[in-house]
Structures are given as C-alpha cells and as structure tokens.
Amino acid sequence: MEDFSVFDIIGPRMTGPSSSHTAGAVRIAYIARKLIGAEVSRVHFTLYGSFAETGRGHGTDKALIGGILGFSPDDERIPHAYELAMDQGVQVAFTYSDAPADHPNTVKIELVDVNDRKMEVVGRSVGGGNILITEINEQAVELSGEYPTLIISHRDEPGVIAVVSQVLAQLKVNIAFMRVFRHGRGRNAYMCIETDTPVTKEMQAIIRQLCSGITDMFAV
C-alpha cells in the first residue's frame, strides 16, 4: 500500500489545467535542465501519445518550456513561457509524433547547453503530477525526481558502487533508494542514487576524486 501524504491529496499547488499534462510536464523538463547543469541554448521536444494529441490544449508545450527555464509547477510565469524563452535566447522546437510510445504521456527532450554540450532525456508523466525519467543519453534509468538524485556513469567493474556509497556515508548523506543499470558486462554502467539531502557541487567533486571508475556525473 502506497504511503500517501495529505499533500498528495490536497496538492500539489500547480499551474493548470492537468496534473499529468501540465504539472508533470514542467517537472520532466525541469529535471532535464538540472541534468544538463548549465543554461540551455536550444531544446527540441518530441511529444508522444496523449501528450502529442492534446498537449497544446493542456498547455503541455508551455509547461515543458517553463521547466527548461527552471520554473516549478506552480510558477505563474508558465503561460508566458514562449515569450520568456525568446527573451532569454533559448531556441525552442516541438514535434508532435504519432509514433507509438510505451506510455501515453511521454516526451523526449534534446538539449544543447551554452557550452555546446548535448543531452537527451526521455520522461513520462505517470499521473497526479508524478513523473519518471526513463532514459538519459539513450541509457535506461528510473528516476522520480522526488528526492535529490545523483546519477553516475561509470565503468562496470567491481568496487565502484561500494566506494561511492562509502564516500556518501562519510559525507553524512543518507541514501534513500539506489538502482544500478549497465549496457553489458564490463561496459558502461549507471548508478541512480536518490538521497535524503542534496549532494552539493563540493561533494560531487570529492566523489569524482576518490572514485576512479567514474566517467560522468549529473545531479538533480
């Protein structure tokens, strides 16, 4: 049985009209923005399923842009997201796809940041404003965004996971949930670590220094 909070029932405070098509969309794009970790210069959204069919009527497009601009789901600027993106020099493009998707409310976000770094994030809105990020740079992940999350890309070799969790313990960061994924034995692997307190930039630097197998790291 799920452990609901009263604020799952009376809440969230959000910009309408739909918790799945609007609030969830803001959150997916917001996480994509946090994952790339720098100002975004270009973004291309591909909407699938019900996102593609009724997205515009629900303001899903504005919600997604709002998330990229760093807005939370209850930000009153979301209806003006197109204008604000233009002001900030963020180029925005949309594709409404009729290709089948695993989940009706799915979006693929391709971002380019001001340093020309590229990233691709796939997420779905699973109801009530809750979301799931399912892919980062074509690697399958599972992240809900409800907790501060650290995503570490590393070589698949013994000890990396142990070292990371040990360093986190020494930094007094409690791990709430942790999942590991890999492309294949001995190839590139991912760790998705949800924590009770955020992992600061300084902490991330320490982890990078102490764990040799790490190839990349993102924090949300």
Binding site: T15, G16, A23, E76, P79
Partner: peptide, 11 residues
C-alpha cells in the same frame, strides 16, 4: 486558463 490552483484531489 493555466492559472494557479491546488489539486484536490486532482486538477
């Protein structure tokens, strides 16, 4: 109209 509300229990 994309204004601010509180889901109770849904939007």
């Amino acid at each position: 109209s994309m204004g601010r509300i509180v889901a109770a229990p849904t939007a």
